[in-house]
Amino acid sequence: MSVDRHIEHSSPMHQFVIGRLNDWQLGGLDISFSKAAAFMFGAVIVATLFLVLTTSRRAMVPGRWQSVAELWYEFIADMIKETIGSEGRKYFPFVFSLFSFIVMCNLLGMLPYSYTVTSHIAVTITLALSVFVLTTFIGITRHGTQFLSFFVPKGVPLVMLFLVVPIEVLSYFMRPISHSVRLFANMTAGHTMLKVFGGFVVQMGVFGVLPFALIVALTGLEVAIAVLQAYVFTILTCLYLNDAIHLEH
C-alpha cells in the first residue's frame, strides 16, 4: 500500500488492524486478502458446518447441538413472522444469513487473539447499506411512486409539510448510518475495554488478579452483547423490510 501506517503492538487499537496478508489488486481495486477476510470466511464456514453437521443425524429426539440449530432457525423464522408476517417468508434466507454472519463474526471475535470483523465501520456500513438498498428497492418495486408517500405523514397541515418532509427524508437516510454505527460502536467499545483491562493485568503482576476477575465478568457481558447486537441488527432489518413491504411507519 502507498500509505504506511504503524500502530504500537501494545496499543488496545492494534487488534483492529485488518492484517493484510498480501497485496492483491484487480483493475485498480484493492482486493488484498487479510485477517479480516479470513475471519469472514471463518464465520461462513463455522455457520454452515454447524448447521449441516448438527442436522446430519436428523434425530427425532434432537440432541443438544441439533436443538441449538433448530432454535437458531426458529428464532429467525418467528422474528420474521412476527415483524413482517407471511410476506416476509421470501426474505428468510437473507435475514437468516445476515444474523448468522453477524453473530458468528461477533462470537469468533470473542476468542483470544482473534479478530472482530464487525468492529469495522467498513463492514457494518456495507451490511447496513445492502439492507437499505434492498428495502428501498422492495419499496419502490412494490409501490412505485406511491412509495414517496412514506415521507409524507398523514394528517399533517400543508404548511408543516415543508418542515416535516425534509425531516422524514433525513430520518430515512439516517437509518443505514445508525444501523451500522450501533453494531460497530458496540463491538469496538467492548473489545477496546477488554484489551485495556487485559493490559492492566499484565502491568500489575500479582495485583492483576482484580482486573482479571473483571475481565472474566466483562467477557461474559461481551458475549451477551455479541449476540444481542446481532439480534438488534437483524430485528431492525426486519422492521425496515416491514416498512418497505407494508409502507407504514
Binding site: M174, R182, V232
Partner: peptide, 11 residues
Amino acid sequence: AWRISIEIVVA
C-alpha cells in the same frame, strides 16, 4: 432500547 440510544446521536 438499543435503537433509541444511538439514533439521536448519529442523526
